[in-house]
């Protein structure tokens, strides 16, 4: 007996195809609409408050009026501390992972695992740790230094992973070429590998800066709430994300200032992100030229 064709009727298939197409389009349109809504609120409620004096004056009346100058300074300093600590440490670890230890070997897996675990830890837990270790155990108190160091722990895995993959993208031809010329490992690293991977390293750095700047939960209990202009690293300082949180939750009538601060933060993040993309493009162009 010949095989019977068991395919469902064509009408069913047609309906299925149409439904899938409609689902994909409508889901996408909904996401686009929500994004437009979010963007409209940000611009509509935030843009009106933003002018030069908003960026350059201190907050008044718990932030309802006045500006965000000390908050921008605190944010900047916290991020600088975080990157200044995490970047060298991260680069060195990445070099070890990409250039020294055996791929897939025990050392690589061990370090890799602990980095992946570190990357997965929720930011509020970093906040707990930062509070217990930096603020209390090391006696730094609620300070910009404690906040920056906590953020450094948080962005370290990102910096290491991006730098590692950047270094791995450097073609082996150059490593062999350097070895064949009898160059030392240090010379190969400084003269060839790091310059060749520089755009990727910088792009990773931008990613880390962006992550640090957007962080709130890890900072509330480490760098604190004080919205005065910080005078030293040991002063408490309020980061911009903490400012947004405080205005929207604890200050009645602070929504407009919160939206304005949010807009500033997002514009900063987009600038940093564009820099990262631009650097990645440079990398791509270079690679194409090489081939």
């Amino acid at each position: 007996m010949p095989d019977v064709c068991v395919a469902p009727p064509a009408a069913y298939l047609h309906v299925r195809d149409t439904l899938l197409r409609a689902a994909v389009w409508s889901a996408t349109l909904l996401v686009g609409a929500v994004f437009a809504w979010l963007l409209a609120d940000l611009l509509g409620q935030g843009a009106a408050r933003i002018d030069w004096s908003f960026l350059t004056s201190a907050p008044r009346n718990a932030g309802r009026s006045g500006g965000i100058a000390p908050i921008l300074v605190s944010t900047l300093v916290v991020v600088v501390v975080a990157i200044a600590v995490a970047a060298p440490l991260g680069l060195a670890t990445a070099v070890l992972l990409a250039e020294v230890v055996r791929r897939g070997g025990r050392t690589e897996r061990l370090i890799g695992l602990s980095l992946d675990v570190l990357a997965g830890i929720p930011s509020i837990v970093f906040g707990l740790f930062g509070n217990a270790f930096f603020c209390i155990w090391l006696g730094l108190g609620f300070s910009i230094l404690a906040g920056g160091l906590t953020l450094a722990c948080m962005v370290l895995p990102i910096l290491i992973r991006t730098a590692e993959s950047g270094l791995r993208m450097v073609p082996n031809d150059w490593r062999f070429g350097a070895a064949a010329l009898g160059l030392s490992r240090a010379a190969t690293l400084w003269q060839i590998l790091i310059p060749a991977a520089a755009p990727a390293l910088l792009a990773g750095l931008m990613l880390g800066i962006g992550r640090a700047m957007a962080e709130t939960a890890a900072l509330v209990f480490t760098s604190g709430y004080v919205d005065r202009m910080p005078s030293s690293l040991w002063d408490s300082g309020r980061a911009i994300s903490v400012h947004i949180y405080d205005l929207s939750m604890n200050v009645a009538g602070g929504d407009q200032s919160a939206y304005a601060s949010a807009l500033v933060l997002i514009v900063l993040l987009i600038m940093i992100n564009s820099a990262a993309i631009w650097l990645a493009d440079i990398l791509l162009v270079r690679r194409i030229k090489m081939i």
Binding site: D173, W174, F176, G177, A180, L181, I192, P195, R286
Partner: peptide, 13 residues
């Protein structure tokens, strides 16, 4: 003992 490779590999300098 110098070495020349199949694919030219000048450094990006």
């Amino acid at each position: 003992v110098g070495m020349i490779f199949q694919r030219p590999n000048p450094f990006p300098l």
